[in-house]
Write a protein that binds this DNA or RNA. Structure first.
Length: 855
RNA sequence: GGGCGCAUAGCUCAGUUGGCUAGAGCGCUUCCCUUACAAGGAAGAUGUCGGGGGUUCGAGUCCCUCUGCGCCCACCA
C-alpha cells in the first residue's frame, strides 16, 4: 500500500502503473481457464504503416472498458493485440524506406542487406528482391513502428496481454491463412476462374466488390449514330465512353420498348470501325436512360458484363492492364477505314483515346449535337486514383453467397445470430449480403502478401493446368510457391514445359485478417488454447468495415467451424472534428494522442472516449477531456478525504438511516452500470457512476462529515465511516474500467493488490441492510440543505455563515425523515435553531432561513 | 431507388418497458480562498423536446405523416 500524499497528483501515474502491471502480469491470460470462464476479444489489428490517431484512441478505449469490466466480473479475459503489416500500405512503406521492390521471380538471398535504411535518394532505382527477403524487411521496419504503437496503447492504458501479440504477415499468420485457403479449396469453397474483373490500372491488380467506392467525376453524354445495316436510317445511342465503340459487341433495349421492338434481331454498323453488331433485348436495359438503347462493350461497366454473359456475346477487349488501348485491333474490325480508325487510338491512354474518338465521330458526322457535360459517380478502388476498368483475367474466389442463394441465406442467418451493439448496425450487414453480385475475389496481382499456396503442372507446351493445382502438404505451410518447389519436382523444372509453375498471386489482406480469431487463438498450432477462446465473445470494429472485415470473418468461420466467429460485435463511431466533419490529415486538424495524454492525462482522454455512446459519431472535444481530468482529480481528493478518517472499529456496520439509504443508492448505481456493461453500453455505465459519485461527494459527504468527525458520538461516527468506506470502495471499482490509472492510484492507498483484479461491486451486498429505508430520505435532506445553501448564496455570503433560525415547513411524513437527519443537517448547514412547522400532506418542503448577523 | 440513423437549452449530448414540474456538462451570470479538492466549491438564467396528426387519464418517450441532416447499399447508357 502506498501512503496517501498531502497533495494527490495525476502526474506520472501512467508510466508508473504500466510498469507495475507489467511486473505483476495483471492482464495476463490464464490459459487453464475453461471456455465458459473466458471472455475473448478479437481485437482489430491496426495497420502499422500509418500512425495511431484519435480514432484508435476512441474505439480501443471502448473495448478496453468492456475488457476491464469482464475481468472484474471474474472472467479470464483473452485480450490480444495484433499488428496488420500485410498488404498494400506496408508494401509501399517498405519500398520507400529501403529502396527495394518485391519481385517473386528473384531468388531468396539469405544475407541480404537493403541499399538504404530510410530516405533513399529520389533518383535511386529500386532493387528487386525476393518475396521472403521483402517479408524480412517488412518485419524489420514494422518492428520499429510497432514499438511506437505499443507505447501509445500502454500509455492509453489498454489492458492487453502483450504476450499474445501477433502480426498478419508473420509465419503463423501465413500458415493459418494458407491452411484455411487450402481447406476452402478442398471443400470447393475456393475456386479459380477466368472472368471479367474490376481492375485498377495503376496498381495493376484485381480488386473486390468490397473495396470499391463511388466518386463523383465529370463526364459527358455523347449521342452517337449507329447505321442500320438494312439502310433504313440510324439508331442513336447515348454514351459517356465513346472510346469504347471499338469494343462494342451489341446494342440493347428493353424487350417491351415499342420504339426498338422492330429492331430486335437486326444489325447495326458501328461508327468509325464499321463492325456489324446485333440489336438485342434485355430487361436490364432502361427505357428512360439516355435514348433508351445502349451499346454493350467488353467491358465498360458491370452491366456490360451481365449482358455479355447472359446474351452470350463475343469479347472484343481493347484495354490492356495498364489502362492503354491495345495495339492489336479486336476481331471484327476488317475494313481499311476501320483499321485506320483503330490505329489512331492504339497504344493511347484512355483519356487521349477518348478525345481522338470524339474528334473522329464529329468529323464523320456520327456525333449528334454537342456532348452534354454531367457529373456522375464512377467506381474507384478505395486506395486508387484512377477509375476502375474491367479486364478479363484468371482469379481466385471464395464463395460468399454472391452467386449461391442457399449460402447467402445461411450467411444472413449468421448475421441474425450475432448480437450487434448497437443493434441497428445489423442492417448494414444484411444490406450488404443481400446486395452481393459475385463471389469474393481474393487474389491480387501484387508481390507482397500471403502467397496463394498452389503450383500448376505445365503441359508439354508449357500451358498451366489450372483445373488440378498442385497442393502442398499442410505440415509444410507456410510456403511461397515462387521459391518453394512442390513435392515430386526439382527446382530446375520451374516454368519449364512438363514442369511446374507457382501461382504468382498473393491473397488480399482481408483473406488473412478474416482469420484474426484463428490467428490470435493459434488455431492449428495450439488447439488447446483455441478451444478455450473460440468462438470468441466480442469483435469490436468500425462500422465502415462491416462489409469487409466483419463479413469475411463470418464467412471463414462459417466454412471452417460451422459457427459464428464471436457472439457479439460492437461498432464504434467516427471521430469528427468540432465542425462535425470527419477528421482528416489533409485538413490539418489531427491532434496527436500523445500530446493529449500529456496535457490532460490518459484517464481524461479515456473519459472523453467513454462518454460517447456505442456506434455514435462523436465530436473531438478537449472540453470533455477537461471534465475528465476534473473528475480524476475529484476522485483523488474524495478518496484521500474518506481515507483520512480513522478506520472504523471492525464489525461496525452502517446503522444510521441516511448512511444505509446512501448505500442503497450506490447499489442501484451498481445494478444500472452492470446492466449497461452487459449490453456493451460502457457510456451509460460511466454516466450513472459519475452522477452518483458527484452526488456522493457534494451532498452525502457534506451532510455526514460532521458526524464522521465524531460530533455525535462513536457509534454515530462509526456508521458514517463504515458507509463512506463501503461506498468509496464501490465507486472506485465502478470507475476502474474508465480511469484505470487514477483508480489504481487511489485503490492502492488502502489495498494491497490491483483494483483491476478486484471483484466488481455487488449490489446485493451493498443493499443488504436497506430493507425499510425510505429512498426519499436522501432527497429530503438534499432539498433542505440546498435551500439553506441557496439562501446563503442569495445573501452573497459565505457558506460557512451560521443560520440563526431555520423554519422548516413540511408534511408529517417528511417531518419524520427530517428528524432522522436533523443532526447531520445541523452541522452541514451550520444551523443554530430549527423550527418545524407542520403543513398538509404533499406540501413541498420549504425552508425559511434566517442568517446569523455577520460578526 | 432500397435501408438505417439523427433532430431535446448558445454548444455537445443524457433522457431504457409512456408518469417530467424536461436534465447534465461546457459556455454564460452571481457569490465563496468553507481546514478533501481554486486545474476548486455553492447557486442562477436559458427549451412551443424539428412540423402536423393520432392512441392514452397522461407522449420528449408509442403509431402515422411531413421536413431537414448524416450514413450504408444499389443504379450510374
Amino acid at each position: 500500500m502506498a501512503a496517501i500524499p498531502d497533495k494527490p497528483s495525476l502526474d506520472g501515474i501512467e508510466s508508473h502503473w504500466d510498469g507495475v502491471w507489467s511486473q505483476e502480469a495483471t492482464y495476463g491470460f490464464d490459459r487453464s481457464a475453461h471456455r465458459e470462464q473466458v471472455f475473448a476479444i478479437d481485437t482489430p489489428p491496426p495497420t502499422v504503416s500509418g500512425s495511431l490517431h484519435m480514432g484508435h484512441v476512441f474505439s480501443y478505449t471502448h473495448t478496453d472498458t468492456i475488457a476491464r469490466y469482464q475481468r472484474m466480473r471474474g472472467k479470464d479475459v483473452f485480450y490480444p493485440m495484433g499488428w496488420d503489416d500485410n498488404g498494400l500500405p506496408t508494401e509501399r512503406r517498405v519500398q520507400n524506406y529501403f529502396g527495394v521492390r518485391c519481385d517473386p521471380a528473384v531468388a531468396y538471398q539469405p544475407d541480404f542487406q537493403p541499399p538504404f535504411r530510410g530516405d533513399p535518394p529520389k533518383d535511386h532505382q529500386s532493387v528487386s528482391i525476393s518475396r521472403p527477403n521483402f517479408i524480412e524487411l517488412c518485419n524489420e521496419l514494422t518492428h520499429q513502428d510497432e514499438k511506437v504503437f505499443e507505447d501509445l496503447f500502454r500509455r492509453l492504458g489498454l489492458s492487453v496481454d502483450w504476450s499474445l501479440l501477433y502480426t498478419t504477415i508473420e509465419e503463423r499468420s501465413r500458415r493459418i491463412s494458407q491452411q484455411a485457403f487450402l481447406r476452402n479449396l478442398a471443400r470447393g469453397e475456393a475456386y479459380t476462374q477466368e472472368a471479367p474483373t474490376l481492375w485498377d490500372v495503376d496498381f495493376q491488380t484485381a480488386v473486390a466488390q468490397a473495396e470499391l467506392e463511388d466518386r463523383e467525376r465529370p463526364g459527358a453524354y455523347h449521342q452517337v449514330a449507329f447505321a442500320r445495316t438494312d439502310g433504313d436510317g440510324d439508331v442513336i445511342i447515348d454514351t459517356t465512353r465513346p472510346v469504347l465503340i471499338a469494343a462494342c459487341v451489341a446494342l440493347v433495349a428493353h424487350p417491351d420498348d415499342e420504339r426498338y421492338k422492330p429492331l430486335f434481331g437486326t444489325t447495326v454498323r458501328t461508327p468509325l470501325y464499321g463492325v456489324d453488331v446485333p440489336v438485342l433485348a434485355h430487361p436490364l436495359a432502361q427505357p428512360d436512360k439516355g435514348t433508351g438503347i445502349a451499346m454493350i462493350c467488353t467491358f465498360g461497366d458491370l452491366t456490360d458484363v451481365i449482358w455479355w454473359r447472359e446474351l452470350n456475346l463475343p469479347t472484343r477487349a481493347i484495354m490492356d492492364r495498364a489502362g492503354r488501348i491495345v495495339m492489336t485491333p479486336p476481331a471484327g474490325i476488317t475494313t481499311d477505314a476501320g483499321l485506320a480508325a483503330f490505329a489512331a487510338i492504339a497504344g493511347a491512354k484512355i483519356n487521349q483515346a477518348q478525345n481522338t474518338v470524339v474528334d473522329a465521330l464529329r468529323t464523320s458526322g456520327t456525333l449528334i449535337g454537342d456532348p452534354r457535360p454531367i457529373v456522375h459517380p464512377v467506381k474507384f478502388y478505395e486506395k486508387g486514383e484512377r477509375p476502375l476498368e474491367i479486364v478479363t483475367s484468371r482469379q481466385w474466389y471464395i464463395r460468399n453467397g454472391g452467386r449461391d442463394g442457399d449460402l447467402r441465406t445461411s450467411l444472413l442467418e449468421r448475421g441474425r445470430q450475432l448480437q450487434w451493439h448497437p443493434d441497428h448496425m445489423r442492417h448494414r450487414y444484411s444490406n450488404w449480403v443481400e446486395g452481393l453480385n459475385g463471389d469474393w475475389l481474393i487474389s491480387r496481382q501484387r508481390f507482397f502478401g500471403v502467397p496463394i499456396p498452389v503450383w500448376y503442372q505445365l503441359d508439354s507446351s508449357g500451358e498451366p493446368n489450372y483445373s488440378d493445382p498442385i497442393i502442398p502438404d499442410e505440415s509444410s505451410l507456410p510456403i511461397d510457391p515462387s521459391t518453394d518447389v512442390p513435392a515430386g519436382y526439382t527446382s530446375d523444372q520451374r516454368d519449364r514445359p512438363g514442369g511446374f509453375s507457382g501461382d504468382p498471386d498473393v491473397m488480399d489482406t482481408w483473406a488473412t485478417s478474416s482469420l484474426s480469431p484463428q490467428i490470435a487463438g493459434r488455431w492449428g498450432d495450439d488447439d488447446d488454447l483455441f478451444t478455450r477462446v473460440f468462438p470468441m465473445d466480442m469483435r469490436p470494429q468500425g462500422h465502415d468495415i462491416i462489409r469487409t472485415w466483419l463479413f469475411s470473418t463470418v464467412v471463414r468461420a462459417h466454412f471452417e467451424h460451422d459457427s459464428l466467429p464471436w457472439s457479439n460485435t460492437s461498432l464504434s463511431g467516427w471521430i469528427l472534428d468540432p465542425d462535425r466533419k470527419k477528421m482528416s490529415k489533409s485538413k490539418g486538424n489531427v491532434v496527436t494522442p500523445m500530446d493529449l495524454f500529456e496535457t490532460f492525462g490518459s484517464d481524461a482522454v479515456r473519459y472523453w472516449a467513454a462518454s460517447a455512446r456505442p456506434g455514435v459519431d462523436t465530436a473531438f472535444s478537449e472540453d470533455q477531456m477537461k471534465v475528465g481530468r476534473k473528475l480524476a482529480m475529484k476522485l483523488l481528493n474524495a478518496s484521500k478525504f474518506v481515507l483520512s478518517f480513522p478506520v472504523p472499529p471492525s464489525g461496525a456496520t452502517p446503522t444510521h438511516a441516511i448512511d444505509v439509504a446512501m448505500l442503497d443508492r450506490i447499489a442501484e448505481t451498481v445494478r444500472e452500470a452492470t446492466r449497461a456493461f452487459e449490453e456493451f453500453d460502457y457510456a451509460r455505465a460511466l454516466e450513472r457512476t459519475e452522477t452518483t459519485f458527484w452526488w456522493f461527494c457534494d451532498d452525502y459527504v457534506e451532510l455526514v462529515k460532521g458526524r464522521a468527525y465524531n460530533s455525535q458520538g462513536d457509534d454515530a461516527a462509526a456508521s458514517a465511516l463504515v458507509a463512506m468506506r463501503i461506498a468509496l470502495s464501490a465507486l472506485q471499482r465502478l470507475f476502474a474500467p474508465f480511469m484505470p490509472f487514477t483508480t489504481e492510484t487511489v485503490w492502492r492507498w488502502w489495498n494491497e493488490s490491483s483494483i483491476h483484479l478486484a471483484a466488481w461491486p455487488d449490489s446485493q451486498v451493498l443493499a443488504a441492510s436497506s430493507s425499510d429505508i425510505p429512498v426519499s430520505m436522501l432527497d429530503v435532506a438534499g432539498d433542505i440543505l440546498g435551500q439553506i445553501r441557496r439562501a446563503k448564496t442569495e445573501a452573497k455570503t459565505s457558506q460557512r455563515t451560521p443560520v440563526a433560525r431555520a423554519r422548516v415547513h413540511c408534511d408529517p411524513p417528511t417531518r419524520a425523515i427530517f428528524t432522522a437527519v436533523r443532526s447531520d443537517l445541523t452541522e452541514a448547514g451550520s444551523v443554530q435553531e430549527w423550527i418545524l412547522i407542520e403543513e398538509p400532506a404533499d406540501t413541498p418542503v420549504l425552508v425559511e432561513v434566517e442568517l446569523a448577523p455577520s460578526t
